[in-house]
């Protein structure tokens, strides 16, 4: 049996989680104070995921705040950064607008409004 300790990143409480495993099988999750914590622990031991937030260059030279609209595999975070930095946003852009589709199962969307000044 193996034991993994981790800190939940779902909310600011940051619960200390313990996952006990028998090979690939999870036998128990403890320390979480909500259901989302259990789901996080489960994902974290099998396929860790992260939401990426960054900025994208705009066609007028300014930068635009962006994010993946859902978590992507943690191992793909730096590749995702490369895709964001290779792209240029065409202004104007509104909050929630999709800038790049199908990035490791997510879309890169704008998190702010930006117009041409």
């Amino acid at each position: 049996m193996t034991k993994r300790e981790m800190t939940c990143i779902i909310c600011p409480m940051g619960c200390s989680l313990t996952v006990e495993m028998e090979g690939e099988e999870i036998t128990s999750i403890s320390g979480n104070t909500c259901k989302r914590g259990a789901a996080y622990a489960e994902a974290e031991v099998s396929h860790p995921q992260r939401t990426v937030t960054s900025t994208m260059r705009c066609d007028n030279g300014e930068v635009l705040a962006v994010k993946t609209d859902r978590p992507i595999p943690k191992s793909k975070v730096m590749e995702c950064m490369g895709l964001i930095n290779a792209h240029t946003a065409k202004l104007p852009v509104a909050v929630g607008e999709v800038l790049i589709r199908d990035v490791f199962g997510s879309n890169i969307i704008a998190t702010e409004n930006k117009t041409v000044q």
Binding site: C11, P12, T51, T53, S54, T55, A65, K67, V95, T111, E112, N113
Partner: peptide, 21 residues
């Protein structure tokens, strides 16, 4: 621009600019 804002207030995870908006 990072996420983690608004879980108490809006029940969803927002970035700073989204929360401000």
């Amino acid at each position: 621009i990072h996420n983690g804002f608004g879980l108490h207030r809006f029940g969803e995870e927002l970035t700073g600019p989204e929360y401000a908006w």
